[in-house]
Design a protein around this nucleic acid. Structure first.
Lengths: 179, 179
DNA sequence: TATCTCATGTAAACTGTTACATGATTTT
DNA sequence: AAAATCATGTAACAGTTTACATGAGATA
């Protein structure tokens, strides 16, 4: 299971609570890893009982208590072992494409509307990713080093979103042409 | 649930058995929809009890019996209703990128090996997709019409795979440069 | 006054994966 | 003789989603 390991990757970088982890997933891995807070809390339970992480309660003034988790040595070993295994190919289940595939059942406007809705959110995502890229590129060479590997994943996100948008324009055009 | 609807899309085009459907998923939708035969058999059961499909046993000489399913009117209505709903954004959970993100824990060779493994399979996929595209383009305009919408999904597959390969080259290069 | 963010969780339902099971025909 | 393809499924487990639940402080 990769969610467990994705959590370990984040905790290896820096300890954090379930809430923190959810935000970090959204902010830094949102374009290649998605996990709900419920899932994260459930996995943290499992990681705790397996001894791969430890947790400590921290009180805060004015805010609810947080349970801050740290990776253990055994967790780090588990993570390194996992990294050495070859990855399974990415599984894609794309609802929009199923609809396009069977799109003869509806007006093309129905398909175009769905395409456009996604286009809007992809454009916003692209803007965010490009801003992150600029932030990285603006760093001095000596400062870049710790962000190199995350930068590679960012580049993947940019390729993905740009490819999607280019395709969507082509597809919208063709759908409109065919009436 | 989209698997149910993906099955309905295939059955609306042409009746078929669970085994057929599995093959059709692999051959025509493999780059945007993946489903195991176990999943398909389970979903067919549910579709049957919901009255969205009907099945009939067909004997074959020398081979096991097949249960051939047909979409019902109610199934077609369900499908059309589903098509009118806006799609949820594609969920991507990419293990390889999680490994890259936390890749400081291992030698870059470990990461490169994983990248190359996937590169090999993406290259093969690209060849298949491009061949399908040529088959479509070779058709006379009058013959293309029924394949137009599937062609749009094929284009998406090509964009995706080409984008992945371009990124992988860039990423491999950078990983090697950084030692 | 209402909504958003912080912060944590449970329970039920649904979906998906892995392993097992069977057995005939066809191809290498 | 072995492996692949045809053809169907069950059972146990793992993972995900949706709905529910609580409650404080900050912001509009």
């Amino acid at each position: 299971m990769a969610l467990k390991h994705a959590i370990l990757v984040l905790l290896e970088q820096q300890p954090g609570s379930g809430y923190d982890l959810h935000k970090r997933f959204q902010q830094h891995m949102g374009f290649f890893w998605q996990a709900s807070h419920q899932q994260i809390y459930q996995q943290l339970k499992g990681l705790l009982t397996d001894g791969l992480i430890v947790g400590q309660d921290k009180q805060q003034q004015g805010k609810p208590d947080r349970k801050v988790y740290h990776i253990t040595d055994s967790g780090k070993q588990e993570l390194i072992g996992w990294m050495h295994q070859l990855s399974k190919p990415l599984k894609i289940n794309d609802t929009l494409l199923v609809k396009l595939y069977g799109g003869h059942l509806v007006d093309s406007e129905v398909l175009l509307r769905d395409l456009q809705q996604q286009q809007d959110s992809y454009r916003k995502t692209l803007a965010v990713l490009q801003q992150l890229e600029q932030q990285y590129q603006a760093l001095a060479e000596s400062q870049k080093q710790p962000y190199r590997l995350p930068y590679l994943t960012l580049r993947r996100g940019i390729y993905h979103v740009q490819g999607w948008l280019a395709w969507a324009e082509e597809a919208s055009q063709l759908l409109s042409d065919w009436q």
